[in-house]
C-alpha cells in the first residue's frame, strides 16, 4: 500500500488538492476529512489533481462524490485534474466522466477537456 499524501494550495479560482499514493478503503476517509475542512465559497471551483494517484477503488470514487456533494452545497464546482488513463477508464465506465469536470494537467477550471476538440 502506498501512503496517501494530500497537499493543499489556494488559487484565485479556489482550493487545489493534489493527491498522490493510493486512494483506497483505508485511506479515502482522509480525503473526505480534508475536504470537510476547506473553506469553499460560492462560485469557486475545487480542483483535485489526481495525476499522482497510483490506485483508486470504489472507496476513492465515493470520496470524489462526497467532495462533489460538499462543493454543490457551498454552491461551488468541483473538477478532477490530470486523470490517469486507468482512472479515466473506470470513470467513463460508470458514467462519472459526465458528472465531474475533467481538466488536463495544470488546466484552467474555465476550460474543461470535455469541451476541447480532439
Amino acid at each position: 500500500m502506498n501512503p496517501l499524501r494530500i497537499t493543499h494550495r489556494e488559487t484565485p479560482a479556489g482550493p487545489l488538492l493534489r493527491l498522490s499514493g493510493d486512494l483506497d478503503f483505508d485511506q479515502a476517509p482522509e480525503l473526505r476529512r480534508q475536504v470537510d475542512q476547506l473553506d469553499l465559497r460560492p462560485g469557486q471551483c475545487l480542483v483535485v489533481d489526481v495525476s499522482g494517484l497510483e490506485f483508486c477503488d470504489s472507496s476513492g470514487i465515493t470520496a470524489f462524490l462526497t467532495a462533489r456533494q460538499r462543493a454543490l452545497e457551498a454552491r461551488a464546482d468541483v473538477a478532477l485534474s490530470a486523470v490517469p488513463a486507468n482512472l479515466l477508464r473506470v470513470l467513463t465506465l460508470v458514467g462519472l466522466d459526465r458528472v465531474f469536470t475533467l481538466l488536463p494537467a495544470g488546466g484552467d477550471p474555465a476550460r474543461p477537456t470535455g469541451q476541447d476538440t480532439r
Binding site: 462524490l65 460508470v94 458514467g95 459526465r98 458528472v99
Partner: peptide, 13 residues
C-alpha cells in the same frame, strides 16, 4: 451506453 452509477445523481441517465 450512457448509463451512470445508480444512486449518485437524481434522475441519473
Amino acid at each position: 451506453p450512457g448509463g451512470m452509477l445508480v444512486g449518485v445523481l437524481p434522475g441519473a441517465p
